[in-house]
């Protein structure tokens, strides 16, 4: 399996890996819009009932929820800070020692924000896990993303790991000439400076050579371009998109009526 630089894409043979990236993007956008417009956090959290079967079908269930566990500390902090220090709190839940008070509306507000983040992160990460960056750019280019911008998106994913590799080479080279890279924070910041010059100059020089290599492959040729990655919008994609949009509107209206 080919690793794709920074992308977290996981190659799996599943239905959701094969559908058009734009369809998945529509699902993601609907979820984001819903998480800002639904009337309460319960409605938002219920969206998780949808992602679980989807993630199982995509064979990435445990991975999909991984960022949540990594960021659980942030969620805990959110509840503590909002629960104790919510600025417009009026409903008291209980008194705590040292004169602190736990506010009910503070906790509610935290739950609202947390559920929003939670749902967006889970859906967003599911999107990244199942969408090959090449497919995404290819399908976006088809609906009007400029060709050059698409190239920048793709190449960034690949080039940043390479630059950090070069950084390591430069660090080793400078160390072998006696540069102190360990020690306290101040020492480290100081030793960082001599690394930037070579890294920056090297990158500029490389990008000149790269732009020549791109020209040698007709990068700026005018006329219609084709794509090696097949990304067609099938009827299935249209059906899924329609269902998603209808569901989102219904759910949004329901949340405000009920």
């Amino acid at each position: 399996m080919a690793s794709i630089g920074l992308s977290s894409y996981v190659e799996k043979d599943s239905f959701f890996h094969t559908i058009n990236p734009l369809t998945k993007l529509v699902i993601l956008l609907c979820v984001i819009i819903m998480s800002f417009t639904l009337s309460g956090f319960v409605y938002i959290l219920l969206l998780l009932l949808i992602i679980i079967p989807i993630a199982i079908k995509s064979k990435v269930l445990s991975l999909t929820f991984k960022p949540i566990f990594k960021l659980s500390f942030m969620f805990i902090l959110l509840f503590i800070i909002q629960g104790l220090f919510h600025p417009y709190a009026t409903k008291k839940l209980m008194d705590l020692p040292f004169g602190f008070t736990l506010w009910e509306d503070g906790l509610l507000y935290a739950a609202y924000i947390a559920s929003r983040l939670f749902v967006m992160m889970v859906f967003g990460y599911w999107f990244v896990l199942t969408t090959h960056p090449g497919d995404l750019v290819s399908s976006l280019t088809k609906i009007g993303l400029p060709h050059a911008l698409g190239y920048i998106i793709l190449t960034t994913l690949q080039i940043i790991p390479r630059i950090s590799g070069q950084m390591q080479t430069i660090i080793d080279a400078q160390r072998s000439r006696g540069l102190e890279t360990e020690g306290n924070l101040f020492q480290r910041i100081k030793s960082f400076m001599p690394l930037l010059g070579p890294l920056f100059m090297g990158s500029v020089q490389q990008s000149v050579e790269k732009s020549m290599a791109l020209e040698a492959r007709a990068f700026s040729s005018k006329g219609k371009k084709t794509s090696y990655r097949k990304t067609n919008i099938t009827n299935m994609d249209k059906i899924i998109m329609t269902i998603t949009i209808i569901f989102s509107i219904t759910w949004g209206v329901l949340s405000w009526i009920l």
Partner: peptide
Amino acid sequence: ANQLTGAGTTIEEELAFGLQNLGV
């Protein structure tokens, strides 16, 4: 390494890069 476009995630895509630009 500098001649690889970075847009291709596989060798096949790397080879396809020029052809895509020509609209093959």
